[in-house]
Computed example of a mutant assay.
Amino acid sequence: MYITITPQNLSAGFSKSSAEFVSYLEKENQGLDKEDLEYFFNQHGDQISAKEVIWEIDSNTAKLKNTEPKFYSITVSPSKFELARLQNSREDLKKYTRELMKDYAASFNREINDRPVTVSDIKYFAKIEHQRTFKGTDKQVKENQPFATQILQLKTEIRQVERGEVGGNIRSLQKEINKLQQAAPHKQNGQRIVQGMPKEGNQSHIHIIVSRKDVTNTHSLSPGSKYKASEVMMNGKLVKRGFDRDAFFQKAEKTFDSNFAYKRNFVETYQSRKLFLRDHKLYFTSILGLPASEKAIALKMLREAGVPMLHIPINKFQLARKSINLLTSGIKAAIRSGSIGI
């Protein structure tokens, strides 16, 4: 499970409205018949239109400054192992989203009218997407890039020959292109992987747009608060503040596992990701110390995420710096692409 929480982009050139972001989330609906459309939903309703989402988010911004985000984006990307556990991706992920937002509300160290924040206080809208495309930062695209560059040069040369600008044999140039297409290290269904190509397999994931203000447009609930979870005296009164991201991410895992009877491996856990970021050597040592069956699953997950498994040491004493650096690079790539739950 890979979850990100991102504030509204307030940079110059970006709309102050949620319309631009909501429009982006409508991309999979383009060209579909009405009965095939994927609608927004929230805790209590389905088939919510993009127009309604924009109005609800944009009108729920009382007393917020221009420098403050009006909404946050939460992206939830289950791994292929987690998706395989679902019976019906669309309905199961809707169910999970509604439980997840209870965890989100519970992670606020805040009170509204002397009671803890609940999901009923949160104004949010979510949407399930089923497609992903390869990005320029993906390992497959980056490692194919030298071949793409040479192919582009050859295609340019072919056009020049066709226009009579230079001499050359078009048939020979095309053969060179075909060789490069085949030599590229990463392919999907026999085709060289390029930026923008749709990824095969189940790519279902969740996008959630959540208002900064509560449903009454009175209280500010920011998951981007610099305060993790604390209490402070304000005007002689003890006030709770903050949002505990660690608690939210851990609850998100437990909620998925309990709802879908999922047995989570060490490398899929949020705690393992934190360990990896804090101490690479201890992270790999922990993997090697897992029971045999769990270690085999962990290594399989890492291998399928594109981590260079040839460099995995066979025991704790072979964790040389070179191996650690190679593994670390592979794990970071897996994190960026959301390939595994770390």
Rank of each mutant, 00 (worst) to 15 (best):
V119M: 09
E268I: 05
L100V: 06
Y262C: 08
I324T: 04
R85A: 11
V161T: 08
D92M: 14
N217K: 09
K281N: 14
L154D: 02
Y72I: 02
M309E: 03
I112K: 09
R321Q: 13
F248W: 04
G236R: 04
S11R: 10
K127Y: 15
S204A: 15
T137I: 03
D244A: 13
F21Y: 09
E200Q: 12
N113M: 11
S23A: 15
Y124G: 02
D36K: 13
Q160C: 08
A12N: 13
L25E: 12
E294I: 10
K226P: 04
N217H: 10
Y270A: 00
R192C: 09
L299W: 03
S18V: 00
I5K: 03
Q195D: 09
Y283F: 15
A252F: 03
E82I: 06
K102S: 14
E38S: 13
I151V: 14
Q87E: 14
D214H: 12
E68R: 05
S339R: 00
V141Y: 05
V161Y: 01
E52V: 10
V53E: 02
D246S: 10
G201M: 08
L290F: 12
E231V: 06
K316Y: 10
T285R: 14
P223W: 01
A106K: 11
I312M: 07
P308G: 01
S73R: 04
A84R: 14
L64C: 07
P78T: 01
E91Q: 13
E28S: 03
K51S: 09
V22Y: 07
I128A: 06
L238M: 13
I170K: 14
D58L: 02
P313T: 04
I208Y: 03
V119Y: 07
A320W: 09
F260Q: 04
L10D: 10
Q131K: 07
R110N: 08
H280L: 15
F81C: 00
N60Q: 11
M1S: 03
